[in-house]
């Protein structure tokens, strides 16, 4: 068992003991971001014949059946072979294509990490790495299929932007951005259902964090699945008189340092929230920035170097305090 220090019990890790939280909000519709990913990729492929999808037998799990039906020649399936998958993607990019290399995130980033480093990032090959079903989206399938290490691993690689969209609209914008970007990128495409968190007409500016609520007491810097939970937490805390500023940081790398520094200087504390191990992801990026430039009280929510027990994705998110209750508990400590 991992040690259970006071910090962890106090909400840095699991939120056991935190009061269950219910919100007044009506149940809102939720979405699998892979669908938006696939639809946008097909739309792009209609406009640009350089777009190809490359997968590792993951036509179904990457939601690429529609792409394959419409562009059978532009769906390259290398079979169950992730090292080959990423190398082939780099070669396609060198040959003038725009490859979206798509696989379940644990296998894409873990099995082919050296190819991502050497063939893609170091070679500056314009490959769009699409890590599907990241975090603990595979729930009961267990830690072999969870991808909580990917943000740490990808952040350790130079010259590789990392984008974690929070909802379908941002997923579409990320796909468009990656296709136009001059260089490689890693997109983390969520499977676990999330609500739409951006108001109609939100402008997605590449590299920029999006401030979703105002609040001058505390800030939560969240990414991916955690953004909607942060919004729910802000609503609960408002009733308690705590103003929580919610910042959606989809561009984990390079980080929007201005937005994070403003959040730190404009509030009394910063909470980070990500569905990932805390060794090197968003929380680590924010902590490093703030430690060097604006020391700030922080709570870093994520998974603290621990393999998950058996359970559904929602159970595991709650278990590790990656829940509305977990964010509320962390905020109450900092407030």
């Amino acid at each position: 068992m991992a040690p259970q220090g006071p910090d962890r019990a106090a909400g840095r890790g699991r939120a056991e003991g935190a009061e269950p939280v219910t919100t007044a909000a009506v149940k809102v519709p939720t979405f699998d971001c892979r669908k938006a990913f696939a639809e946008e990729l097909i739309a792009l492929a209609r406009e640009d014949d350089r777009i190809v999808a490359v997968c590792n037998d993951s036509v179904g799990s990457s939601n690429l059946t529609g792409f394959r039906d419409e562009f059978p020649d532009r769906l390259i399936n290398v079979g169950i072979a992730e090292q080959d998958l990423v190398g082939v993607g780099a070669g396609l990019a060198n040959g003038g294509m725009i490859p979206f290399v798509s696989a379940a995130s644990p296998f894409l980033t873990g099995r082919a990490l050296e190819q991502i480093k050497a063939d893609v990032a170091y070679s500056r090959a314009k490959v769009v790495l699409c890590g599907q079903s990241p975090g603990m989206a595979y729930g009961e399938l267990g830690p072999t299929h969870h991808s909580i290490e990917d943000l740490s691993w990808m952040r350790a690689v130079a010259d590789l932007p990392i984008v974690v969209p929070a909802d379908p609209a941002q997923t579409r914008a990320a796909v468009r951005w990656a296709a136009a970007n001059d260089g490689p990128s890693f997109l983390r495409i969520g499977r676990h259902p999330v609500p739409a968190v951006h108001p109609e007409g939100t402008e997605f500016v590449p590299g920029k964090a999006i401030r979703l609520t105002d609040g001058d007491d505390l800030a939560v810097v969240a990414t991916g699945t955690m953004v909607s939970r942060a919004l729910e937490a802000a609503e609960i805390l408002r009733a308690e008189g705590i103003g929580l500023r919610v910042l959606n940081v989809a561009y984990v790398e390079p980080l929007d340092t201005d937005a994070v520094l403003q959040a730190a200087s404009g509030t009394r504390g910063v909470i980070t929230a990500e569905e990932a191990t805390t060794t090197g992801g968003l929380g680590a990026a924010v902590a490093t920035l703030l430690a060097e430039n604006a020391p700030t009280r922080m709570r870093i929510l994520g998974i603290h170097r621990e393999f998950a027990p058996t359970g559904s994705t929602d159970f595991l998110l709650d278990h590790f305090g990656l829940s509305t209750a977990g964010i509320v508990a962390a905020a109450r400590e900092l407030a």
Binding site: I76, Q83, G87, A90, G91, L92, P99, E114, Q115, A118
Partner: peptide
């Protein structure tokens, strides 16, 4: 392509040829 770690060049060449 940047090579050095072994077993990388051939998959990349396959991508070129594709």
């Amino acid at each position: 392509t940047n090579t050095g770690p072994l077993g990388h060049g051939f998959p990349v060449a396959v991508g070129h040829a594709l």
